[in-house]
Simulated scan of single mutants.
Amino acid sequence: MTTLHDAPPAAARPRPPATSEHGDRSGGSPVRKALAYLSLTVVTLLVLVPFAWMLSSSLKRDNEVFAIPIQWIPEELRWSNFVDIWERIPLLTYLGNSAFLSMTITLLQVLTGSFAAYGFSKVRFPGRDALFLAYIATIAVPWQAYMVPQYIMMQQAELTNTYWAIILLQAFGAFGVFLMRQYYMSIPDDLCEAARIDGLSEYGIYWRIILPLSKPALASLALLTFVNTWNDYMGPFIYLSDNELWTVQLGLRSFVGQYDADYAMMMTGAVVSVLPILVIFLLGQRYFIRGIATSGLKG
C-alpha cells in the first residue's frame, strides 16, 4: 500500500500537455494555421503565374501571346510549336552546349568550394578569419565592376570565343565557399582531431570524412550552380560569338528579329530549356532542402 511519503514529488509527476486558450495543444489556433496556409497558397500561386503564362503562350500563335484579356487556355492548342522549334534553330546543339558548360562549371565549383571551405573551417592558420571575410566580401562587388577587366584578360590570353573563358572565370565562387563552410562548422571538430591522431592527412580527412558527411550541402551547391550557369546569358553573350558555341539562352535570341519577334517560339524554347532544370531539382530536392536548412546552424 502506497503511503503519502512513497508518492513521487510534484516536480517528478507527469504534467498534462499545455493547451492554449482555444484548446489547441500545439500552441497555435486553428484560425492562425488556416491563415498561414492560405497565405502560403496565395504566394505560391503568384510565383507560378509567370510559368503558367509561359506554358500557355508556348501553345499559341504569335498574335495571341499578348492578347488582352489573357486567354489562359488557347482555343487551338498548337502542339506543333514543339516540333517546329527543332527545325527553326539547332536547339539540340544549344542544349548540349549549355549542358556541357553547366556540368563542367558545377563540378569545378563543388570541388574548389568544398576544398576551400575545409581550410576555412577545419584548418587553423594565422589570418584565417580575416582572409575568409575578405574573400566573402567579394560577393558584394557587382559583376559589372570587373566585367571589362576580365574581358581584357581573356582577350589578351586569346581565350575569347572559347568555353575556356567562361569555365576559368566561373570555376571559383565565394558563395559556394560560404555555403560549404557554414555546413562544415556544424560537423564536430573532434572527428578531425581523432583522424589526425590516427595519422590521417588533411587531404584524407577532407576526402574520407568531411565529404561523405556533406552530401546535402554538396547537392545544394551543385543544384544552385547548375541552375545559375544554365540560365546565364551575359557570360556566353560576351565571350561566345560563334553560333556553334551558343548556349540555349543565346539560341532563343534567334527568334528576335529586327522589327518583330516570334514570341510563341520564344516561349516554346523557354519551356524546353526549363525541363532539364525541373528534372534535376525533382531528383535532388530532398538533399537540396536539407542542405539549405542545415547550412546556417552554426557559424
Rank of each mutant, 00 (worst) to 15 (best):
E64V: 05
I105W: 10
W72D: 00
E64Y: 04
D84G: 06
L59T: 03
V83D: 04
Y118E: 12
E75V: 04
R88W: 07
S114D: 08
Y118K: 02
E87Y: 07
F100L: 14
V83M: 04
V65S: 03
R78F: 04
Q109V: 15
S56F: 04
V110S: 12
K60C: 00
Q109A: 13
P90Q: 07
T104N: 14
I89H: 12
L77A: 03
L111Q: 15
G119Q: 12
F115L: 15
L111M: 15
R124Q: 15
Q109N: 13
S121P: 09
D84H: 08
R124F: 05
E75C: 02
Q109W: 11
T112F: 13
E64M: 01
T104V: 15
S121T: 11
P90L: 06
I73S: 00
D84E: 08
W79V: 08
A116N: 13
V110K: 10
R78E: 05
V65L: 02
I89W: 02
W86I: 14
V110I: 06
W86E: 05
G119L: 00
V83I: 14
A99I: 08
S102L: 10
T104E: 09
P90W: 11
W86T: 15
E75M: 04
S121M: 03
D62I: 01
W72C: 09
I85W: 04
Y118H: 10
D62Y: 00
A99C: 12
Q71E: 05
I105Q: 06
F82P: 08
I70Y: 04
